[in-house]
Design a binder for these strands. Sequence first.
RNA 1: AGGACUGUGGCCAAGUGGUAAGGCAUCUGGUUUUGAUCCAGUGUACCGCAGGUUCGAAUCCUGCCAGUCCUGCCA
Length: 559
Amino acid sequence: MSNKPEGIERPVNFIRNIINDDLANHLHDRVCTRFPPEPNGYLHIGHAKSICLNFGLAEDYQGKCNLRFDDTNPAKEDVEYVESIKKDVRWLGFHWEGEPCYSSNYFEKFYQYAVELINKGLAYVCFLNAEETREYRGTLKEPGKNSPYRDTSPQENLALFEKMRAGGFKEGECVLRAKIDMASSFMCMRDPTLYRVRFEHHHQTGDEWCIYPMYDFAHCISDGIEGVTHSLCTLEFQDNRRIYDWLLDNLDDFSRPDRPHQYEFSRLNLEYTVMSKRKLHQLVSDKLVEGWDDPRMPTISGMRRRGYTPASVRDFAERIGISKVDSMTEMGILEAAVRDDLNKVAPRTMAVMDPIKVVIENYPEGEVEVIQAPIHPQNEAMGKREIFFSRELYIDRADFMEIAPNGKYQRLAINKEVRLRNAYIIKGERFETDVDGNFTTIYCSYDPETLGKNPADGRKVKGVIHFVEATKALPAEFRVYDRLFTVPNPGKAEDFESVLNPDSLIVKNGFVEPGMAEAPVEQAYQCEREGYFCRDNKINDRLVFNRTVALRDTWSQQK
RNA sequence: AGGACUGUGGCCAAGUGGUAAGGCAUCUGGUUUUGAUCCAGUGUACCGCAGGUUCGAAUCCUGCCAGUCCUGCCA
């Protein structure tokens, strides 16, 4: 019964089943979701999961998904975050109609709905202080007791609430509470606070208000006002669904069968990283990372800077699916998703990150040869690029050993032949070292008849290594990133900062092909045999490349 | 006896009474001027455990176990 466009087949999940049922039963004739971040931090990959779910549903059912800033707590929020959130959602490739929504847009309506509850005898102004409120609430196993202010008349409550709005009470002096059930097994139903007094400047409404609604009150009503059909949130809000339902059912505008309903799915946990906003804030403020967009951060902006593409993030979200199981997702799924995308779209290039000089002794001195190399070996249509070859080259230190350790070794060694990628076959002849025994120069010979073809005598050369011609090579910095933490679940560590990976960033200095001089920011490249890299989007006075992810390596696993 | 939710191969995840999809990872071959890609193949899953209903149960019932969440004037 879904009217999703042909060709797009997303994996099924329990939420889609619910929507399909609702549509089939004509409970709803349209789908409206929303992504409701609080603008108090940067978006991370966990939010991306939610964004893809909510906006993806809207796309598939030709419905609508609102971007809504849940800005009911001005003390913690800032426009810096609303801007970054808009940017990140757009970058992921999703769109919202018109201006984004803000809960703060509805402050006046919220106030009127609160008045409705007061008139119905379902809300009251309570003068218990925070500590007393806690005592009155009871515990998980014992019921609470009624506030002494619980039976104030609606007329009096109305006057009190007006006075709250008018600034007649100090912060903490009183709150507006729903009158529900102090014995409920759901703690959130023990007369939850609806409004508190805060003389705080709000990033959207300025100083217009000194009372601000609580999440439980604002969220369901915002959904109702916007005509949201399916309000999707994470598991920790399961209990809150009772207050969500109670409020909508007690408000005349919303107590209809087709009112919004809340459904909960499990949040994303990714191995070797943290997802809590508090911890991410801490990493930034303790300067353990460069900032919110540090490429090691699981933030959208960090992943973008690292070289992840919107397509890869969306594909990842699709691969992990949606369920209600508390789970821990392996990094491998994320990495496989980027590799799949980048393998298809990334131009190939060669970069040497830990250079050793190679001299081809039988190559004419002073000559520089131009070679046309494919930009993508599996996609001719991407064309060719010019690379260079001469008597002096750079290869990577990891690609040479004096003596091959075993028969499986496929790289350069003395008296061993190897193919230089896109160029000739060379053979190691001799080498020089420094006083510490490190190789400084390797002298080789080349077979002039092997450019673009195999040796005529039929000898097999299995190994292929990459290189950069020395005179035209451009110096470049490579930032090789690894997991931020050393343990799979750093969030559970007593002190998560103590389990940071000291090698999460290794900076290498080497060379790239001259064609990389104008590499656009964020453009993904595959440095052949090394991995996927992109030009850093912050540093522009020199060539800095961030490693997005290494190539799949089944070889080093065997060693 | 506080309540809510969850438990399907190493990791995600379909499945809603008819005899266990798929992805990632793993392993094995083949192709390959990236030890990549690509292609083909690869799993004895006590479906948390124990009972029960049924011709038949991962799916229904009962009991138990384990994990997560709930006592902010945070979201």
